[in-house]
């Protein structure tokens, strides 16, 4: 693992500028928090492809839908909590139902807007979008994954939700790492336990895996960057090869990655799953790492859980 830490919103900002320069149909629809979501450079360098609707999420969603009907590929950019819940029904009605090529690209996923408090932390968003037909839901694990998946999203037709971190998270990939939407990355092999993680928690699973290795426990780590469509085969491989799965996410344990994995495992009927994530409780103003700790989203907890009998 690299020593670097970078926020995944930076990966989005860099990627969207890059692809915007090569494709005039790529637009950014900002909702007055573009600077914070890293579209500042895009707005300056590509003003003809940039729209700012002001503090009006619902209109932003509809404007993006209207743009998309003409072949434009709009990225609606805001914070995860607003990009899911404040405009959720507009996205359902005007983007997902008519299956338009609109991307919702949100910074401030999970508890990363830590000191902003519960109003800005987003623990429900992926669950909401996971249940809307036609929608793809992704959370890259690091800066390079964010860059790569933003490019994949731009090149793949359909409504998509991309969730980024406000806070810096460790860089685990490099510029050349390839990502495929809907295909989990198996980062380590393992026999004793599987850890399936998404977004900013992938590095925690990797650190836990190293600790476990020292204790003679072999852990398989999956980066499940696409929550929907879920890589069911990758989950089923864990069910059949290992039978003990820990899910890790910076999202409510209800209806996020933990739920999605449980659904597959339960139908397969041959595995036990433990869910590590936000414990169905609101956050508060506190350091990001502290908020994770309050919810048991830590390397120590993952290691302890993996060592337990269950």
């Amino acid at each position: 693992m690299g020593e670097n830490k970078r926020a995944t919103r930076d990966g989005f900002g860099d990627a969207i500028l890059e692809i915007g320069k090569t494709n005039p149909d790529i637009y950014v629809v900002d909702i007055d928090i573009g600077k914070s979501c890293k579209t500042g450079a895009f707005s300056k360098e590509l003003p003809a492809q940039h729209v700012n609707v002001g503090i009006a999420e619902q209109n932003g969603a509809g404007v993006a839908a209207g743009l998309a009907t003409t072949g434009i590929i709009p990225f609606v950019v805001t914070y995860a909590v607003f990009g899911s819940l404040r405009m959720g029904e507009q996205i359902r009605q005007e983007v997902c139902y008519p299956n338009l090529n609109v991307k919702i690209a949100c910074s401030h996923g999970g508890v990363t807007p830590a000191n902003d408090g519960a109003s800005h932390q987003s623990i429900e968003d992926m669950g909401v979008y996971r249940t809307i037909p036609n929608m793809t839901v992704m959370m890259p694990a690091d800066y390079y994954a964010a860059k790569a998946l933003v490019k994949e999203a731009a090149n793949t037709y359909g409504p998509m939700y991309l969730r980024f971190t406000r806070d810096a998270v460790p860089v685990i990939y490099d510029e050349n790492t390839k990502f495929e939407i809907g295909k989990a990355k198996r980062l380590t092999e393992g026999r004793d336990v599987a850890m399936i993680a998404i977004g900013d928690t992938v590095h925690l699973a990797l650190e836990a895996q190293k600790e476990l290795e020292k204790a003679g426990i072999s852990a398989r780590v999956l980066d499940m960057h696409t929550l929907k469509p879920l890589d069911e085969k990758a989950v089923l491989d864990c069910v059949r090869d290992i039978g003990r799965i820990i899910t890790v996410e910076d999202h409510n344990i209800l209806n996020g990655l933990g739920s999605a994995v449980c659904e597959i495992a339960a139908e397969a009927g041959d595995a036990k799953v433990k869910r590590v994530g936000i414990q169905d409780q609101f956050g508060m103003s506190a350091p990001y790492e502290r908020l994770l700790e309050i919810n048991g989203i830590t390397v120590e907890h993952l290691v302890a859980l993996a060592k337990q009998e269950w």
Partner: peptide, 20 residues
């Protein structure tokens, strides 16, 4: 030209089309 049914949303879509 756009699916509707949930009230209040069509004008935003029209704004997007007109802007395009």
């Amino acid at each position: 030209d756009i699916s509707t049914g949930s009230l209040g949303q069509g004008l935003s879509c029209g704004v997007g089309m007109a802007l395009a």
